Simulated assay, not measured.
Amino acid sequence: MLLQIDLQSEVPIYTQLVHNIIEGIARKELLPGEALPSVRSMAADLGINLHTVNKAYNILKQDGFVQVNRKQGAVIHPASFPLADEQYQLRLQEQMRPLIAEAICRGMSSEQFKVISEQIYSQFSIGEEKEDG
């Protein structure tokens, strides 16, 4: 999996790393039971501080996307991922509010926003369709 980290972005590097790994899982590029690179290896490969990688891995662990053990390090959760429960849906709404508000301020219609959302969603669903078909 190719990670895209923008060192000039306003988004913290650990957040970018978390997002990249979750996108890799969604695209089926990272599979359950697959080990992520060690903290040191990932930090060296990306040219970032190992504490940044450690923070990202800890967030992924807290959110249920990875398990961390002494032998294998960080491993994509082998069983199942956390469900989109009510708490997650509330958090999703909070995160989407500013995006939708800005889109409205910029003159984007509800339909345009839906089209963009559906395009992004379908990019991640392609992996599921390949497995089913």
Rank of each mutant, 00 (worst) to 15 (best):
Met1Ile: 12
Leu2Trp: 07
Leu2Ser: 08
Gln4Ala: 10
Ile5Asp: 03
Ile5Tyr: 02
Leu7Cys: 04
Gln8Leu: 13
Ser9Thr: 01
Val11Thr: 03
Val11Met: 00
Pro12Asp: 00
Pro12Phe: 00
Ile13Asn: 00
Tyr14His: 10
Tyr14Lys: 07
Thr15Ile: 09
Thr15Arg: 04
Gln16Val: 06
Gln16Arg: 00
Leu17Thr: 02
Leu17Asn: 04
Leu17Ile: 07
Asn20Gln: 13
Ile22Arg: 10
Ile22Gly: 02
Ile22Lys: 11
Glu23Met: 10
Glu23Pro: 10
Gly24Ala: 14
Gly24Tyr: 10
Ile25Ser: 11
Ile25Pro: 07
Arg27Tyr: 14
Lys28Tyr: 15
Lys28His: 14
Leu30Thr: 07
Leu31Gln: 11
Leu31Thr: 05
Gly33Ile: 00
Gly33Gln: 00
Ala35Phe: 00
Ala35Met: 02
Leu36Met: 01
Pro37Ile: 02
Pro37Val: 02
Val39Phe: 03
Val39Tyr: 02
Arg40Thr: 05
Ser41Tyr: 03
Met42Gly: 01
Met42Tyr: 06
Met42Ile: 00
Met42Arg: 01
Ala43Ser: 06
Ala43Cys: 05
Ala44Tyr: 15
Ala44Pro: 07
Ala44Gln: 15
Asp45Asn: 11
Leu46Pro: 09
Leu46Lys: 04
Ile48Phe: 11
Ile48Ser: 11
Asn49Leu: 10
Leu50Trp: 14
His51Trp: 10
His51Asp: 13
Thr52Trp: 05
Thr52Val: 07
Asn54Thr: 08
Asn54Phe: 12
Lys55Tyr: 06
Ala56Thr: 08
Tyr57Gly: 04
Asn58Ser: 13
Asn58Lys: 14
Ile59Arg: 10
Asp63His: 10
Asp63Val: 08
Gly64Met: 05
Phe65Ala: 04
Gln67Ser: 14
Gln72Met: 14
Ala74Ser: 10
Val75Phe: 14
Ile76Leu: 08
Pro78Leu: 10
Pro78Met: 09
Ser80Thr: 14
Ser80Ile: 13
Pro82Gly: 04
Leu83Pro: 06
Leu83Ile: 04
Ala84His: 04
Glu86Trp: 01
Glu86Gln: 07
Tyr88Met: 03
Tyr88Ala: 01
Leu90Ser: 06
Leu92Val: 12
Gln93Ile: 04
Gln93Met: 07
Gln93Pro: 00
Glu94Tyr: 03
Gln95Ile: 07
Met96Glu: 02
Met96Gly: 07
Arg97His: 12
Pro98Glu: 02
Pro98Cys: 02
Leu99Tyr: 05
Ala101Gln: 13
Ala101Thr: 08
Glu102Met: 08
Ile104Asn: 08
Cys105Pro: 00
Cys105Gln: 14
Cys105Asn: 14
Cys105Gly: 09
Arg106Tyr: 08
Gly107Leu: 09
Met108Thr: 12
Glu111Thr: 13
Glu111Phe: 13
Gln112Tyr: 12
Phe113Gln: 15
Phe113Asp: 12
Lys114Gln: 15
Lys114Arg: 15
Val115Glu: 12
Ser117Phe: 05
Ser117Gly: 09
Glu118Ser: 08
Gln119Thr: 10
Gln119His: 06
Ser122Lys: 05
Gly127Asn: 01
Glu129Phe: 13
Glu129Ala: 09
Glu131Trp: 07
Asp132Phe: 01
Gly133Asn: 11
